[in-house]
Design a protein around this nucleic acid. Structure first.
Lengths: 140, 140
DNA sequence: AGACAATTGCAACAATGTTGCATTTATCTT
DNA sequence: AAGATAAATGCAACATTGTTGCAATTGTCT
């Protein structure tokens, strides 16, 4: 998965640098959004020293390429688990345990874009966040 | 419109204070997302001095009540122009001029929630942001 | 008008994000 | 495999944004 992102980077002419690989690894492992400083902290515990400026720049890049997203809730960053399905990403955020799951649906995506089109808006990509309870937390 | 929000506040047991009214007024006037410090700045030019801590707390409250939202892009705050249609808010963000337009669609909203349900997720409310070009900017 | 709980302002602080520039590194060429 | 070169990193300093506890104030209810 990290490998996929690296390839995307290179395909667009960006270099596969050590800091970028490390940031991608950390994002990959986390199922919850994490902040730039969180990422730096995790890497430090592994003896990998990366400047926070670099992390910011890396995250900016990943977001521009739709490989990661900044969440509305909390503001942390999350690696997209699905490779940009028509530029449409949906995240379900459990308000109890904080777990996040991504899903895609092309049909829905087309409908949404069409609706926007009807209002004169030309959509390039879109993001959705659903807030509620995951199955586990709903049981209680 | 500000009046509606004030009523919602009071209906939930919150007080209709001077700072809250002022913040709502500023949000109401702006069609683009604005930051807490922007709001403070605008108020200051009108001779209204409001502490930034208060503005933060007010925005937190408005977001909790779904009267405003923090946008993913840029992180600014925006007053919802539509009164929470089934807890579903859609914003179209023009990547050229920055204009934002909100729209709602109950049918789509139901479909989305159903899809999430199929995955075991119980949605309480959700937010979408569409990025692209508004009709004006698309012409060019 | 007075009481009471909610809200604000203040001060100090903590976290997060940004810029310019010298140094380093990945990739391409030969 | 070594060198050239453009891109990317690290550093330092700074700027902005967000948070906490507590005393003073204010809106609402009686």
């Amino acid at each position: 998965m990290v490998q996929d992102s690296i390839q995307t980077l290179q395909a667009q002419g960006y270099k596969a640098t050590r800091p970028r690989k490390l940031v991608l690894e950390v994002l990959e492992e986390s199922e919850k959004p994490i902040s730039p400083y969180d990422i730096q902290g995790i890497l430090r515990t592994r003896g990998k020293q990366i400047n926070h400026v670099t992390i910011y720049r890396t995250l900016d890049l990943l977001c521009r390429l739709n490989l990661a997203h900044k969440m509305m809730s909390g503001g942390g960053f999350l690696k997209c688990s699905l490779n940009a399905a028509e530029g449409c990403h949906r995240f379900m955020v459990c308000q109890d345990c904080g777990a996040i799951q991504e899903f895609a649906n092309k049909e829905l995506c087309r409908e949404e874009n069409q609706l926007a089109r009807d209002l004169g808006f030309h959509t390039e990509h879109h993001l959705s966040e659903f807030y509620g309870l995951c199955s586990g937390c709903y049981e209680k």
